[in-house]
Design a protein around this nucleic acid. Structure first.
Lengths: 116, 116
DNA sequence: TGTTCATATGAATATATGTTCATATGTGCT
DNA sequence: AGCACATATGAACATATATTCATATGAACA
């Protein structure tokens, strides 16, 4: 028997559901992970990250390399900054971006390896 | 010197950009990876996947467990089916969903481990 | 065959997100 | 001080996506 108002189903295994619910990861943890994956869900953002592997590039070089407008690159870099994925360094008029570390590359590669 | 119309920047390192461009991964590969990450960018979808680890559940059990409407669960399961992440089995009136394999769990855990 | 349970699905809605456009900020140079 | 280069940013716009609502489909059962 099932006494919920979400659905009328009678054949729910309540004990199993309770058990899974208790073992379920903390929602904040899941949300944090999802936010990271969301960063990696955009083609242009991933291409920016891949471009910054092993070197630093300035905004216009990224813009030129990836065929994106300067504004678009800048907006995406802001997301990557906020997510602590990239850092930057000012040199004269230019701002050079680079990866904070290689962890993000490894994660992308794990995604790439999935079912391939 | 730089002869592009994307930006007016003169200090672009053209040779470096060409080199990176040549080494850049195939765009289809990147897009495919991004699509996978996009699947994992939604909290409810990830919770469905985590719930299906080690067992099969029917739609209403998922709905009850995750406090989502039946319709919403069903829509999300469609995405997971289309991405080949889950499979299903019919038993009488119910449809039991389960993971195709554990690769997706491992990927989620990799994301969780990132900067933690 | 009519009813209930279980799930799927299309349309509508609200929200989130990426890009563009215009402009602001800031640096170096003449 | 004025100008060109380099980047950042807010607003507007278009698109994508998640949820809800209503309804369709389908199986079991009386």
């Amino acid at each position: 028997m099932c006494s919920n108002d979400l659905c009328e189903i009678k054949s729910v295994r309540s004990e199993l559901i309770d058990e899974i619910s208790n073992k379920m990861k903390d929602n904040d943890t899941i949300q944090k992970t999802c936010n990271l994956f969301k960063i990696l869900s955009d083609n242009n953002r991933v291409r920016i990250i891949l471009s910054l592997q092993d070197r630093e590039l300035c905004v216009c070089e990224l813009s030129l390399l990836l065929d994106m407008s300067q504004s678009s690159v800048s907006h995406q870099l802001r997301h990557l900054r906020n997510s602590n994925i990239v850092k930057f360094r000012k040199e004269n008029k230019q701002i050079f971006y680079s990866l904070n570390n290689d962890e993000i590359i490894k994660l992308i590669e794990k995604g790439e390896e999935y079912e391939s």
